[in-house]
Design a binder for these strands. Sequence first.
DNA 1: TTGTCGAGTAACTGATATAGTTGCATGACT
DNA 2: AGTCATGCAACTATATCAGTTACTCGACAA
Lengths: 136, 136
Amino acid sequence: MKRNSRLSLALHSVAHMASEPDRLRTSAEIAEHAQTNPVVVRRVLGKLRQAGILKAEKGHAGGWQLARAADRISVADIYLALDERLTPVSEDAPPRCSVEHALERRVSLIMDQAERDLIENLKGLSIAEARFPIDT
Amino acid sequence: MKRNSRLSLALHSVAHMASEPDRLRTSAEIAEHAQTNPVVVRRVLGKLRQAGILKAEKGHAGGWQLARAADRISVADIYLALDERLTPVSEDAPPRCSVEHALERRVSLIMDQAERDLIENLKGLSIAEARFPIDT
DNA sequence: TTGTCGAGTAACTGATATAGTTGCATGACT
DNA sequence: AGTCATGCAACTATATCAGTTACTCGACAA
Ligand code: FES
Ligand code: FES
């Protein structure tokens, strides 16, 4: 895979689980569907569990399940649960001159606004509806 | 540095050059300002040269210079010149089921729209004005 | 015309991020 | 008690990127 396959994996897994919401699935099953590794699945879906999107049960009849109906899970929920922001402008290095500081601040403001708008738009797309093709 | 320091380097270098547009600067000078390496500077600024934002001259009195006035260079110009898109959803792997295909398509449409909006906003910010602090 | 200097570029190194893997502890059900 | 699945730590492999070295090409000067 490549960078940021985590979002793809999370979206596909949740969408797949939405087809049979009552069925418990093991990480091994989900990994097979996504053609990856059970531990990778548990790592990524673990974030969704912490965010309250999924439930996981240990033990003999354990597995993963949606925590609520698919039409109440938005793509924004999943995007935010993974906690991976865009923010291409680095804030870690202390700016070495006032010009750089002013410039990065202005660009960061625009970037942050863009991401907020993106999240707003992703909020309008639920997993339930995202599973079906677009008409146009 | 960290990921996407190229945009920071490009922005800072162009902003610095805007303070004395007529002066030619060598990659060694620019690298010293940005606390990095001359080859790295040439790699990044080379993209801006290809995009027509900067001019570079070889030889004894060679160096780098803005190709046009700073108020006619927008942050979007630089962002686009580097040709690094966001697009967190991978398109390289062929989708393995129709659900994944539909879902990634819908998410991609929203992501692409967000990036187009971002670029529109960056177009409104020129290097000339970005060099000064924000009032608010 | 020859030497110097700077851009341009290819090749390599080191650091970092991420997917994948192994192994084991914990907890739930049989 | 035994089985099975999650949770998690540690490790490996790979890709990306900044940094570095070492060259070629071209422009200008002596
Ligand atoms: S394999 Fe079930 S949604 Fe793709
Ligand atoms: S050092 Fe000149 S603009 Fe930052």
